[in-house]
Design a protein around this nucleic acid. Structure first.
Lengths: 126, 126
DNA sequence: CTAAAACTTGACATGGATGTGAGGTTCAAG
DNA sequence: CTTGAACCTCACATCCATGTCAAGTTTTAG
């Protein structure tokens, strides 16, 4: 598939797909004329990339952590640690987000009951 | 308390606190000489602001959504919707993050077992 | 009174992913 | 062959919370 198709299939802009490639996250084979071609599996790959980006991983981190693309498996224990760290970070992020959600829910509640939102708004540490 | 104290108490930089004020998120009373003073409750307030920022709300949104600071209660139904939207968004974000966490966990697992991470890496839609 | 620490405003810099536009090439279809 | 859509590369713009630096003022402690 060509870049436009992949963009349509993933929701990522063509610009972003080129960027992912530039960052070493996504491979493509070029047509004789120089245009990018992607295997069908690229759709999932892009989904993964976007998820990780949305989770706050930086493209450099993703490159380190994501298997292959370029030079397959430089499996250092350092890398394993890295992965673990990111996992921990994301889990913390989820916990924080949970608290934030509760705060928002509380706001919504107070909003409904009286119109004055007597915000208690406790328990948050960024 | 003065800005330095609040910064120390919250982990936010003085720069950020001034920015929050500039954006209408945080109030202060000025000393005769023009320096900012905060009530004790500001600590919690800043915590809340930071949580919401971390959750991806923009400072403009927070201003809209957070009770008072400036003109208390312009309680339009529009605002209630807004709040609800953000709540929904954050909940979606949590769900996505959950999936991402699982993916990361999978990576870590594969990493431990064999050294080759045969990434299946399914089920993600940004 | 004085020096140091803390604060003030203002402006410019940063990062990271993405948008955007120019100017040119390739591809698919008539 | 021709045309228009899709693509290419480069480069600069944007967003938004923060960092950072400069030059000046206020506060606090000695």
């Amino acid at each position: 598939m060509r870049i436009g198709d992949l963009a349509a299939a993933t929701g990522a802009s063509a610009r972003s797909l080129r960027y992912y490639e530039e960052q070493g996250l996504l491979a493509s084979v070029r047509s004789p004329g120089g245009q990018r071609g992607y295997p069908h599996a690229a759709v999932e790959r892009v989904g993964l990339i976007r998820s990780l980006l949305a989770a706050g991983l930086t493209s450099a981190t993703i490159r380190d952590v994501l298997p292959c693309v370029a030079d397959e498996s430089i499996r250092t224990p350092w890398l394993a640690d890295r992965l673990g760290d990111e996992l921990t970070r994301v889990e913390g992020q989820i916990a924080d987000l949970h608290r934030t959600r509760d705060v928002l829910a509380e706001l919504v509640e107070n909003y409904k009951i009286n119109g004055t939102a007597e915000t208690v708004l406790s328990t948050n540490q960024a």
